[in-house]
């Protein structure tokens, strides 16, 4: 019997994910008084997840390095801010149009990707990041230069979405849609083409995969997801400036993907959760602790910890958090009969 398209796939995770996302804010509200702060952190996580899932499709699946992904985010954010506040378009329209524009920029940066690879592509995208940043400052008629831009809150069908609580549902609806969409892409022909390109370009081309088409497509989709996260960031933070999108942020996004596990959608989600929670909950505690113990200047603690976490993961756990989880799951499945050497 020929299998149907989705027969061998377990789709139970979709309602589970939606239920979890709906449950968390209410649970937090019931548990703590400072729930608004946690909701704010969760919003940041949701926005970043949209980007890191896109980055994972590009770097983890298609194997194309991007060291300038914050630039796409900046393009989305500024385009949406200009479209909504200065051109007067409705937010819903901008929510669709701005990611597409960011995706077109991804398309443009995809052209060099056809010629160069590896480190050279990393340098090209890094240069692209610097150029976009400079472009935003140069177009100061619309973007207010480096002073930053105040953005209005999102308005959907006449309802203005204000405050972290309402933003949560907007951000996470889109984040869940992106996660589900990315899982579908990965399991489809396109996802398999990406993985073939990552593993060997020559072999992929010999098997009849159109390299140019799929590389361009991966840049387009990754760029537009980054643009979408930029739109959300602009409209939920109400203020954007070029400092929000500097080159270190692009590096942090890659750290999130690699720590979670490159080449898995859940890996990107887990990595984003891990890094942002580490940044917001653990690092301030550690900084105050260090300050009382040694009275050293600990302002740079955050980036040091990020660098260290990244470094340790690359050396000791290259498959990331998701790989760790998979290993653990297999370990418990086989429990008393574990072949020792497989789990070292």
């Amino acid at each position: 019997m020929i299998k149907g398209r989705y027969d061998d796939e377990n789709l139970k995770w979709i309602p589970l994910l939606i239920g979890l996302v709906l449950l968390i804010p209410f649970a937090l509200k019931g548990m703590t008084f400072s729930y608004k702060y946690y909701i704010y952190i969760l919003n940041t996580i949701g926005i970043y997840i949209i980007l890191t899932v896109g980055l994972d499709l590009l770097s983890g699946y298609a194997g194309l390095i991007s060291l300038g992904h914050a630039a796409f985010m900046a393009i989305g954010a500024y385009t949406s801010a200009i479209l909504v506040d200065q051109a007067g378009l409705p937010f819903m329209f901008s929510l669709i149009l701005s990611p597409l524009i960011a995706g077109c920029f991804g398309f443009i940066i995809g052209f060099p990707a056809l010629r160069v690879s590896g480190m050279y592509l990393g340098l090209t995208t890094m240069g692209f990041g610097f150029i976009i940043r400079r472009l935003i400052i140069a177009l100061r008629e619309w973007t207010q230069g480096s002073a930053g831009l105040v953005v209005s809150p999102p308005n959907i069908f006449g309802f203005t979405i204000k405050g972290d609580w309402a933003n949560y549902f907007l951000v996470w609806t889109l984040a869940v849609l992106v996660i589900i969409g990315a899982r579908r892409i990965v399991k489809s022909k396109i996802g398999r083409a990406f993985m073939a390109i990552r593993d060997s370009e020559q072999a992929a081309e010999a098997s009849g995969i159109n390299l140019a088409k799929y590389k361009m497509f991966s840049f387009f989709i990754s760029g537009s997801l980054a643009g979408l996260s930029g739109v959300l960031m602009a409209h939920t933070n109400h203020f954007i400036s070029t400092d929000h999108f500097d080159s270190m942020l692009s590096i942090y996004f890659i750290i999130m993907v690699l720590v979670g596990g490159a080449g898995t959608v859940y890996g990107a989600v887990l990595g984003t959760l891990f890094i942002v929670l580490l940044d917001n909950l653990f690092v301030p505690e550690l900084e105050t602790l260090l300050h009382t113990m040694f009275s050293i200047e600990s302002g740079e603690m955050e980036s040091f910890i990020f660098g260290l976490v990244m470094f340790l993961f690359i050396i000791f756990q290259p498959t990331g958090l998701y790989g760790m989880w998979l290993k653990m799951r297999i370990y418990w499945k086989l429990f008393p009969f574990n072949p020792k050497q497989r789990f070292t």
Partner: peptide
């Protein structure tokens, strides 16, 4: 390797 050297740079 690129990311390892970048994280070394950050550190």
């Amino acid at each position: 390797i690129i990311m390892a050297t970048i994280s070394m740079a950050i550190m």
